[in-house]
Nucleic acid binder design. Sequence first.
DNA 1: TATTGTTATACTCTATAACTATA
DNA 2: TATAGTTATAGAGTATAACAATA
Lengths: 170, 170
Amino acid sequence: MSGEPAYPETVTTPQRVEADLGWALARVVRAHLRTAEAVLAELPGGPRGHQVLAAAREGRPSTQLALARKLGIDRTVMTYLIDELVGAGLVERRPDPADRRARQILLTGKGEERLCTAQRRLREAEEHLLDPLEPVERDQLRALLQKLACSTDPATPCEVAAAVQECAEH
Amino acid sequence: MSGEPAYPETVTTPQRVEADLGWALARVVRAHLRTAEAVLAELPGGPRGHQVLAAAREGRPSTQLALARKLGIDRTVMTYLIDELVGAGLVERRPDPADRRARQILLTGKGEERLCTAQRRLREAEEHLLDPLEPVERDQLRALLQKLACSTDPATPCEVAAAVQECAEH
DNA sequence: TATTGTTATACTCTATAACTATA
DNA sequence: TATAGTTATAGAGTATAACAATA
């Protein structure tokens, strides 16, 4: 180890936009969002509704705030989102027995059905989206993104802004 | 080849959100955006301004519309963005000699300087962001995203919506 | 007639703040 | 005093439409 950066050529060479991580990420996310919106058009809340359902199915029942944090959604938005899902009969709100301020979000039978078909369709559409990659590469990409996503700060943009401001005040 | 899906276990097993591609993408993009906004705070236009500069440096001079399409930015937004960059003296608008309706966007010397330092800082910050991954994995992720991004439809959401509507009308 | 760039307007989404009920 | 959830309002960002200049 000489202290030199690990990727001298990419650092010193003027980068094209195509080599920009932000550019590639934005482009892929846009494409994925388009796909997800098309596939999940009839699902209340669209792609975000789907994520709420998927998160609600896991392990012990989550509160709205826990879901909001996990999904990077503002808690005020989460209220509307869940209203929509409750209205469609896909989830239920239940007072948390351990903390009566909080509400647990539970998947209904209908919600579980809709989630299953949604995930099946989404999976197909995603494989289509990932067509330009080799099968092995698709798995690699999924795994790498998952690994990275699981170890990044889950905070919402507005929460970060608030924290920064708070920090600056002290 | 038996016609069966390549990843039966992931398709049939109920997915956790953490395994959701959309979830991981959104989370990584949010983290990257936070980083980029912090690092490029003084750059006019922020992360998008940076991308415009990077795209403007490549090859032959691009028109505003070409830049907009490449970066997935609406052309009306591109006007304001470039106004900002022109105001800061980082780019220049020049009538396209081949088509007098269009304007070529050219990087000034000052723009090139700012772009270089911005990219250096961004690169550092990104490596920090990618810390959870092994060095090899970071390269893999960059390469996979780049490959995928370069082969996806560059259209802007609103352009897609317009195209869909147009399609439905005929 | 179609396209590039511009501008103004309308709209959507999100953040902010204020409130309640609990802790 | 702090937190979970709700609601209303304000603000940022975006799309829509209309226009001028050119193809």
